[in-house]
Structure formats: structure tokens, C-alpha cells
Computed example of a mutant assay.
Amino acid sequence: MPQINYVDHSGTCTPIMVPLGDSVMEGAVANGVEGIVAECGGSAMCATCHVYVDPTFSALLPEMGEVEDTMLDLAASERHDNSRLSCQIRVTEALDGLVVRMPESQI
């Protein structure tokens, strides 16, 4: 199982082993990681699972879809070049060690 490293706004890192095929958001919610609200449950309709992906992993992520791109424009915290919705990132072996940082606010 790949390890995903969730870093909250204060800098505290919570490493979680997330099953292959689950989303980064599902891994956070299942393990009580604070900072990912996930109001819509993973349908890319709320932007409350917004994360900043460590640039080292950017090339390993799936291409951003139009819906995700639109929702990130509506996120509560500032959008950056490395912003993604964690519900749209499926965990693969290649993402072992992925670091995602949570913004200051999701709502």
C-alpha cells in the first residue's frame, strides 16, 4: 500500500497507508485527517478537498479535467499551480510517498 503524507496548514505531517485505487481524499476521510472536509463525498462538486501537491509528484498525476479545473477556481483558499482536488487523485504505486499540503481553509 502506498504511503500518502498529509501536511496540515501548521506543518504537521500525517503519513497514511492508502489502498491502491482509493482517492487521496478517501484516504484522508477514512483516517480522520483534519483539513480535508470532502462535503460532496468525492464527486468534484464542492472543492472542500483542495490540496497543494508537492511539485515532485506533479508529472505522475492524471491530467486535470474541466470540472476539477472549474471547481478549483471556487475553492475557499487561494489556488496555486500545484492545486488539485484530492478526490480526483487515485492512489497508484507511483504515488508512494506523495506529499499533499492542506490550505488554511476549505470552507
Rank of each mutant, 00 (worst) to 15 (best):
M1F: 04
L60Y: 10
L60F: 08
R79W: 00
D81M: 02
P103A: 07
L74I: 07
G32Y: 13
M102L: 12
L85T: 04
C40N: 13
F57E: 06
N31A: 14
C46Y: 13
V37A: 07
G11Q: 00
M1Q: 08
R101P: 07
L20A: 00
L85A: 03
G27C: 11
S43P: 06
E78W: 00
M25C: 12
E34A: 15
N5L: 02
C40I: 09
G42K: 10
D81F: 04
E66Q: 11
G35C: 13
G97I: 05
H80N: 00
D73G: 09
V37R: 14
I36V: 13
M102R: 10
L72A: 05
D54N: 11
Y52R: 02
G27E: 13
C40W: 12
T12N: 14
L61W: 04
S105N: 04
C40M: 12
P19W: 03
L60D: 08
Q88L: 01
N82W: 00
P62E: 14
S77L: 02
L85V: 00
G35S: 09
E93Q: 11
S83C: 04
V51R: 12
T48S: 01
A47D: 01
V18H: 10
Q3N: 12
T92I: 04
D73H: 08
V51E: 10
D73C: 06
D22E: 15
A28D: 14
E68A: 12
L20F: 07
V51F: 04
M102A: 00
G21Y: 07
N31T: 10
I16E: 03
H9G: 03
M17C: 11
A38L: 09
G35L: 14
D73A: 04
A30S: 15
R84D: 06
M45D: 14
S105C: 00
L74E: 10
T14V: 07
F57N: 06
E26A: 15
V53N: 06
E104C: 02
A75T: 06
A30H: 15
E66D: 15
Q3L: 06
V99H: 09
I89N: 08
I107G: 10
P2F: 08
